[in-house]
Amino acid sequence: MRSLILRTIAPIVLHLTLIFSLFLLLYGHNQPGGGFIAGLMTAVGIVLQWVTFDADDGWHRYNWPWDRIFSYGLALSACVGLFGLLSGYFLKGSAYEFNLPFIGEVEVLTAFFFDVGVYAVVVAVLLSILTTFCDRRAVIRGAPK
Protein backbone atom coordinates (compact mmCIF):
# COMPACT_ATOMS: atom_id res chain seq x y z
CA MET A 1 0.00 0.00 0.00
CA ARG A 2 1.52 3.28 -1.03
CA SER A 3 -0.94 5.81 0.30
CA LEU A 4 0.92 8.98 1.26
CA ILE A 5 -1.59 9.97 3.90
CA LEU A 6 -1.42 6.59 5.57
CA ARG A 7 2.35 6.57 5.51
CA THR A 8 2.49 10.00 7.11
CA ILE A 9 -0.04 9.21 9.79
CA ALA A 10 1.00 5.65 10.62
CA PRO A 11 4.12 6.49 12.70
CA ILE A 12 2.19 9.00 14.77
CA VAL A 13 -0.67 6.58 15.25
CA LEU A 14 1.77 3.86 16.20
CA HIS A 15 3.20 5.96 19.02
CA LEU A 16 -0.23 6.90 20.24
CA THR A 17 -1.46 3.31 20.21
CA LEU A 18 1.64 2.09 22.01
CA ILE A 19 1.28 4.73 24.71
CA PHE A 20 -2.42 4.04 25.03
CA SER A 21 -1.83 0.29 25.24
CA LEU A 22 0.73 0.79 27.99
CA PHE A 23 -1.81 2.96 29.77
CA LEU A 24 -4.38 0.19 29.42
CA LEU A 25 -1.93 -2.33 30.81
CA LEU A 26 -0.88 -0.23 33.79
CA TYR A 27 -4.30 1.12 34.70
CA GLY A 28 -6.24 -2.01 33.96
CA HIS A 29 -6.78 -2.77 37.60
CA ASN A 30 -9.01 0.09 38.43
CA GLN A 31 -10.15 1.34 35.04
CA PRO A 32 -11.13 -0.31 31.76
CA GLY A 33 -8.11 -2.11 30.39
CA GLY A 34 -5.92 -5.07 31.17
CA GLY A 35 -3.26 -7.24 29.60
CA PHE A 36 -5.49 -8.79 26.97
CA ILE A 37 -6.85 -5.55 25.51
CA ALA A 38 -3.48 -3.84 25.79
CA GLY A 39 -1.85 -6.73 23.94
CA LEU A 40 -4.40 -6.58 21.16
CA MET A 41 -3.97 -2.81 20.95
CA THR A 42 -0.19 -3.05 20.63
CA ALA A 43 -0.43 -5.80 18.04
CA VAL A 44 -2.99 -3.93 15.96
CA GLY A 45 -0.88 -0.77 16.19
CA ILE A 46 2.12 -2.59 14.81
CA VAL A 47 0.02 -4.29 12.16
CA LEU A 48 -1.35 -0.95 11.05
CA GLN A 49 2.19 0.32 10.72
CA TRP A 50 3.04 -2.81 8.78
CA VAL A 51 0.18 -2.37 6.35
CA THR A 52 1.60 0.95 5.27
CA PHE A 53 4.79 -0.74 4.13
CA ASP A 54 5.11 -3.51 1.65
CA ALA A 55 4.47 -6.86 3.35
CA ASP A 56 8.04 -8.02 2.80
CA ASP A 57 9.43 -4.74 4.01
CA GLY A 58 7.26 -5.02 7.11
CA TRP A 59 8.49 -8.51 7.61
CA HIS A 60 12.08 -7.33 7.64
CA ARG A 61 11.22 -4.66 10.18
CA TYR A 62 9.22 -6.79 12.56
CA ASN A 63 10.79 -10.19 12.19
CA TRP A 64 11.51 -10.42 15.90
CA PRO A 65 11.81 -13.72 17.79
CA TRP A 66 8.11 -13.69 18.64
CA ASP A 67 8.08 -17.38 19.46
CA ARG A 68 10.52 -16.75 22.29
CA ILE A 69 8.59 -13.74 23.48
CA PHE A 70 5.34 -15.65 23.80
CA SER A 71 7.12 -18.50 25.56
CA TYR A 72 8.60 -16.09 28.08
CA GLY A 73 5.20 -14.47 28.54
CA LEU A 74 3.58 -17.80 29.31
CA ALA A 75 6.46 -18.67 31.63
CA LEU A 76 6.07 -15.36 33.45
CA SER A 77 2.37 -15.92 34.06
CA ALA A 78 3.00 -19.49 35.20
CA CYS A 79 5.76 -18.29 37.54
CA VAL A 80 3.40 -15.73 39.08
CA GLY A 81 1.04 -18.65 39.66
CA LEU A 82 3.82 -20.64 41.32
CA PHE A 83 4.75 -17.59 43.38
CA GLY A 84 1.24 -17.72 44.78
CA LEU A 85 2.05 -21.16 46.18
CA LEU A 86 4.40 -19.47 48.66
CA SER A 87 1.53 -17.60 50.25
CA GLY A 88 -1.10 -20.30 50.02
CA TYR A 89 -2.23 -21.80 46.74
CA PHE A 90 -1.46 -21.71 43.04
CA LEU A 91 -2.25 -18.31 41.47
CA LYS A 92 -2.98 -16.65 44.81
CA GLY A 93 -2.61 -12.94 44.27
CA SER A 94 -0.93 -10.66 46.78
CA ALA A 95 -0.15 -6.95 47.06
CA TYR A 96 3.09 -5.28 48.11
CA GLU A 97 3.52 -1.62 48.95
CA PHE A 98 6.73 0.22 48.28
CA ASN A 99 7.80 3.71 49.23
CA LEU A 100 9.72 5.02 46.26
CA PRO A 101 11.63 8.30 46.43
CA PHE A 102 9.94 11.21 44.53
CA ILE A 103 6.98 9.02 43.60
CA GLY A 104 5.62 8.01 46.97
CA GLU A 105 3.53 5.00 47.90
CA VAL A 106 3.31 2.48 45.12
CA GLU A 107 1.18 -0.60 45.39
CA VAL A 108 2.35 -3.56 43.32
CA LEU A 109 0.01 -6.48 42.75
CA THR A 110 1.38 -9.84 41.69
CA ALA A 111 -1.64 -9.97 39.39
CA PHE A 112 -0.03 -7.15 37.42
CA PHE A 113 2.87 -9.40 36.43
CA PHE A 114 0.41 -12.09 35.47
CA ASP A 115 -1.22 -9.48 33.24
CA VAL A 116 2.14 -8.58 31.73
CA GLY A 117 2.56 -12.24 30.80
CA VAL A 118 -0.87 -12.23 29.15
CA TYR A 119 0.09 -9.05 27.31
CA ALA A 120 3.31 -10.58 26.00
CA VAL A 121 1.54 -13.75 24.86
CA VAL A 122 -1.21 -11.88 23.01
CA VAL A 123 1.17 -9.50 21.22
CA ALA A 124 3.70 -12.17 20.34
CA VAL A 125 1.25 -14.81 19.14
CA LEU A 126 -0.55 -12.37 16.84
CA LEU A 127 2.68 -11.04 15.41
CA SER A 128 4.25 -14.47 15.08
CA ILE A 129 1.24 -15.57 13.01
CA LEU A 130 1.66 -12.47 10.92
CA THR A 131 5.40 -12.86 10.41
CA THR A 132 4.99 -16.51 9.41
CA PHE A 133 2.30 -15.55 6.94
CA CYS A 134 4.43 -12.86 5.40
CA ASP A 135 7.47 -15.06 5.41
CA ARG A 136 5.52 -17.64 3.43
CA ARG A 137 4.35 -14.96 1.07
CA ALA A 138 7.96 -14.06 0.46
CA VAL A 139 8.87 -17.68 -0.20
CA ILE A 140 5.95 -18.28 -2.53
CA ARG A 141 6.66 -15.19 -4.53
CA GLY A 142 10.21 -16.37 -4.69
CA ALA A 143 13.18 -14.22 -5.38
CA PRO A 144 12.58 -11.43 -7.90
CA LYS A 145 12.27 -13.23 -11.20
Binding site: G35, A111, F114
Partner: peptide, 21 residues
Amino acid sequence: IAGFQNVVNAIIVDYRGYDTL
Protein backbone atom coordinates in the same frame (compact mmCIF):
# COMPACT_ATOMS: atom_id res chain seq x y z
CA ILE B 1 -10.32 -10.08 47.51
CA ALA B 2 -8.53 -9.26 44.29
CA GLY B 3 -7.25 -5.85 45.33
CA PHE B 4 -8.57 -3.82 42.43
CA GLN B 5 -11.77 -2.27 41.22
CA ASN B 6 -12.02 -3.22 37.58
CA VAL B 7 -14.32 -6.20 37.94
CA VAL B 8 -13.75 -7.52 34.42
CA ASN B 9 -10.01 -7.56 34.87
CA ALA B 10 -10.31 -8.96 38.38
CA ILE B 11 -12.25 -11.88 36.95
CA ILE B 12 -9.67 -12.41 34.24
CA VAL B 13 -6.54 -12.38 36.36
CA ASP B 14 -7.78 -13.36 39.80
CA TYR B 15 -11.11 -15.16 40.18
CA ARG B 16 -10.61 -17.02 36.94
CA GLY B 17 -6.82 -16.97 36.88
CA TYR B 18 -6.68 -20.67 36.07
CA ASP B 19 -8.90 -20.12 33.03
CA THR B 20 -6.76 -17.26 31.81
CA LEU B 21 -3.58 -19.26 32.22
